[in-house]
């Protein structure tokens, strides 16, 4: 039974109308960073959390704040610090002296868009509380479990420099992020535009142009985007090549300590569907997988000491995997 691609194409046309409005609104404030904005939309459409890494001043926080402002959702920013406690995130039970009872006080996690700023500056117990909420999409305060509202999206940032006094996220917890983005500096013309925008009349106000319902509807359409069997095989080959590179004639066995998990397979196919959706296509092509592959795999491939000794990063390894696996 083949899906009706024509009908799907029409639905994509109808449901993706908000994408342009959203990107136009974001571009009022954010100059360039097309890569970052597009990936934020992929996370939004796939219901996948995003870890953003980049040096200070690259508009990571601003991009997330602008995105949340353009969507009619509840936004919370949590600045992660060494003295943060799990209760500061999830909430706690407060004693009411008049009634003599304890009442729950919900924490900032009860929002739609969470910006966990500098996530690696909080201790492991706080990180665990956040990551558990990310996975379970529910929070327990006292004896009661509260489901989190939909959409629920965590956008965490971390700084690759100033590692002293930080608590690096364990690999198992990093795996819960659908995408890990590596934000780079803008180019020369973008830098000039940044200069003009930020030194003139100040940043323009952002209007909420998208409702949470628009996003939830779009998510359903994204799930229906057609992924051919040939491309499913391609995705599985890519993931398997990170685990058993020698079976794909890739001489990298000694460079990889741990390959990508099955979550990578799921997220890679979902993210490729979202990329196809953003391009107004009802079916995935290999380019969609290649476009998002690095962001899905870079934090899931754990390199060995040998690779570190050779000054190779997980991105180099993923790049080699993409170059070595034949495109259908």
């Amino acid at each position: 039974m083949h899906p009706d691609i024509k009908a799907l194409q029409e639905r994509i046309g109808a449901e993706s109308f908000f994408v342009k409005r959203l990107t136009d609104e974001i571009s009022k404030v954010i100059v360039g960073q097309k890569y970052l904005v597009e990936r934020l939309l992929v996370g939004l459409l796939c219901d996948g959390h995003i870890l953003i890494e980049g040096v200070p001043g690259l508009a990571k926080t601003l991009a997330v704040k602008t995105l949340s402002a353009a969507i009619q959702t509840k936004f919370q920013r949590i600045q992660f610090t060494p003295d943060l406690l799990p209760a500061d995130l999830i909430g706690t039970m407060i004693y009411n002296p008049q009634k003599g009872t304890f009442t729950p006080k919900k924490g900032p996690l009860f929002a739609n868009l969470i910006l966990a700023d500098e996530i690696n500056r909080a201790p492991a117990k706080v990180q665990s509380a956040l990551l558990e909420a990310m996975q379970e999409r529910q929070v327990t305060i006292g004896d009661t479990t509260y489901p989190l509202d939909e959409p629920f999206l965590v956008l965490a940032t971390q700084n690759p420099i100033e590692q002293e006094g930080t608590y690096p996220l364990p690999e198992a917890q990093v795996d819960r992020f659908m995408l890990k983005l590596s934000v780079t500096y803008p180019n020369r013309s973008e830098e000039l535009q940044i200069l003009d925008k930020n030194t003139a009349t100040g940043l323009p106000a952002i209007q909420a142009v998208v409702s949470p319902e628009d996003i939830l509807r779009a998510r359903k359409v994204v799930q229906q985007v057609y992924l051919d069997e040939k491309l499913k095989e391609y995705i599985v080959n890519l993931v398997f090549a990170t685990r058993e590179p020698e079976k794909f004639n890739l001489k990298m066995k000694d460079l990889i300590a741990y390959g990508a998990s099955p979550r990578a397979t799921i997220y890679l196919s979902l993210a490729a569907k979202a990329v196809a959706f953003l391009k107004g296509r009802g079916y995935v092509i290999p380019e969609d997988i290649k476009a998002i592959g690095q962001d899905v795999l870079r934090h899931r491939v754990i390199i060995s000491y040998e690779a570190e000794a050779e000054d190779l990063t997980s991105e180099d390894i993923v790049q080699k995997v993409f170059e070595g696996i034949e495109v259908p």
Binding site: H2, I5, K6, Y226, D228, K230, L231, G282, Y283, V284, I285, P286, P328
Partner: peptide, 13 residues
């Protein structure tokens, strides 16, 4: 060509 290759049932169209 990509459209046909990755959505084979559209080839007839």
């Amino acid at each position: 060509c990509d459209r046909v290759k990755f959505t084979p049932h559209l080839a007839k169209e």
